[in-house]
Nucleic acid binder design. Sequence first.
RNA 1: GCCCCGAUAGCCCAACCGGCAGAGGCAAUGGUCUCAAACACCAUCCAGUGUGGGUUCGAAUCCCACUCGGGGCACCA
Length: 807
Amino acid sequence: MQEKWLPVWDELAPFRSGRPDDERPKKYVLDMFPYPSGDLHMGHAEAYALGDVIARYWAQQGFNVLHPIGWDSFGLPAENAAIKRGIDPNGWTEDNIAQQKASMRRYACSFDWDRVLHTSDPAYYRWNQWLFLRMYERGLAYRKDSAVNWCPNDQTVLANEQVVQGRCERCDAIVTKKKLTQWYLRITDYADRLLDDMAQLEGAWPEKVLLMQRNWIGRSTGAEVRFAIEGRDEPVTVYTTRPDTLFGATFFVVAADSDLAAELAAGTAAEAEFAAYLEGIKQVSDIDRLATDRPKTGVFLQRYAVNPVNGERIPIYAADYVLADYGTGAIMAVPAHDQRDWEFATAFGLPIRTVVEPPADFEGEAYAGDGPAVNSGFLDGMRKAEAVAAMIAWLEERGLGTGAVNYRLRDWLISRQRYWGTPIPIVHCPSCGEVPVPDDQLPVRLPSAEGLDLTPKGTSPLGGAEAWVNVPCPRCGGAARRDTDTMDTFVDSSWYFLRYLDPAKTDGPFDVEAAREWMPVDQYVGGVTHAILHLLYARFFTKVLHDLGMVDFEEPFTRLLNQGMVVMGGSAMSKSRGNLVRLSDELAENGVDSVRLTMVFAGPPEDDIDWADVSPSGAKKFLARAWRLSGDVTSPVGVDVTTGDLGLRRATARAVDDARKAVESQRFNVAVAKTMELVNAARKAIDSGPGGADPAVREAAEAVAIMLSLVAPYTAEEMWERLGHQPTVALAGWPTVDPALLVEDTVTCVVQVAGKVRDRLEVPPTIGEDELRALALAAPGVVKALGGAGIRTVVVRAPRLVNVVPA
RNA sequence: GCCCCGAUAGCCCAACCGGCAGAGGCAAUGGUCUCAAACACCAUCCAGUGUGGGUUCGAAUCCCACUCGGGGCACCA
């Protein structure tokens, strides 16, 4: 069947979306593009089967559907394979792309093959560089020196988002900290918009993803408070969400690894102790830091801060439970109302002063809840919200502090010390400093990997490409060096959906006019693994592009579907676990259509599919059963179906309508079930009903073919041909439903007595309440159940239900 | 520790605004066809919705508590 239909589909190109004279309304369906590591696997098969249902459905509904595909082809696997086997990452990548592309074609994905792109193509990454420079011009791309996450295995830095439970999300190595100068994108400038614009996505994105993003951005509101430090000219500002507890601050803590801690310790009696402590915590990995029961440690710096609200002298400690890169790296400690401060105070014998009255039955240690303020001067008696506002006003009046907002989100670290990525288009000149590469000199192409040592060693392999690195400064012409870092590959995937609109464009990253027409993406489909990283970055880029005046929308993806994973025997498939199911084996055994059908029918798309629980051979049987229908139709093409058997016509109308509703609400498994139901009804009509010559049977079989075309394109095409039509069924159009056929002439009304079903009545759907009540009370089952007892009330829900409540 | 989501037949899953627990499939059993088997077709079997309370004429559906499973966050002041 593949040999038969692939050339036909190539010829007809039903899914080419760029025709200029196409007047159909537009829909943009986007599948997350794959990383080209080897051939497609079961996970791809599921994701692309689901995306295809949506794309093909909209095509059947008469939309001009843009459904592109490409490859996210920069990244470590290519580089690691290259190191391991001594081959060129580019060649490895191209080979895998060719293999995946061939598999996708066989898998009958409805992609527009005229729009493919891959991100390791200089014609693509040139625009990464261009966008980077636009951000640089606006101060959104900058370099800073700080302690960064370092993966000792991959020998590269990682973004905050790529560290999971203190481990590298890619290779699972324990992440350490390293002080480096790195490139960042100022995503924190967009924190509020990234958070607030999620209101637009409510109901259209999985609630879980929105929640994860909200948590990740982690906006909190509170106040910044200035504390004078004895023996220091400048006060130190702290951030707190509980300014109402300021009277309860009994000590002060600075992050041990902050510059401030070092400065405060310098020259004091605590200096040596502090240095030893600092050395000690550097040895503690993030893994250990994450342990919840870790005892609080710290060093008294022999110095004092002054609480601005009551002039009290409070001791300053350096500790590792305060983070250097959140807030200001220093806190006021209120042990009575913060569990961490409570633990520290207990360990160091510091005073604990209650300033919020806990409820009488409170049994915990620190009380973080609401309650009336006590021991708090002018705040006494106020509850939390009022006290917070009053304290902020008090501080602001005296210039001692101000209301403030903080975020958990950090700026996005994009430098990577690896080869296979987009070179950062900056030249470092001894006299001019950082100099952007002029636009007309883009792309800065990667030097050939040949002769380069790609082995990770902590600095970028690009530094070894002498001829590439040493360039004249674009500004002064003097000897200068290129920046040798490459960009995080998440930069590549932050705007690829725009590039599809005109992937060959040479005078800009994307076609602004086409973006106005096609964007935002109507439906995005992909794994929940990208719930934070990719989706947050893509949203950020979109907002930057909006501010650059290049797009007129603020959110790139209108609707998001996260498909589940394909697992085997309850756990994720892996070679080492020995439960790997090979897609190629499944395809060879059961065929493309059966595998796709199995994926779609297994359950709701967002649920995991356990391959042990599903039956591709069952799917195969069903497809054969559906296909046989087309051979049993004996009426001619174009026969007047209105003369057909009414029962089957009703079943067809109902199935088509139910399937439509199911697809639109993304219950694809239900849509398949409705198709199965129709196949059963048609079979019955042929074998033991009006027979294959009845026009209603043709109507049903044609509807089945079209419904199946969303899931099983080969089978559907075969049926369509056998039914006497020209290809392609993919554009046959969704069957029209006569609304009259959906109206039943009688419905079954359930009659309950005290909530138990006692009788059933066949009534017209238009029956009135009073009439139905009378009928129900006279029903034999009701009379019997009542047994002469009186009636309290009768609940009538015409036409489906009556409930008689006995006295 | 905090926060989300889920639990329906042996298994995977349906059930619209609270209104007959069953659409579909897998497996099983019986039958038709066959020399026999496979295929195909027909039929049958199977739960009262995780547990305990509550609201309601009526709860799988709403509320509370709990159990189990999955996921997210985790010294973010």
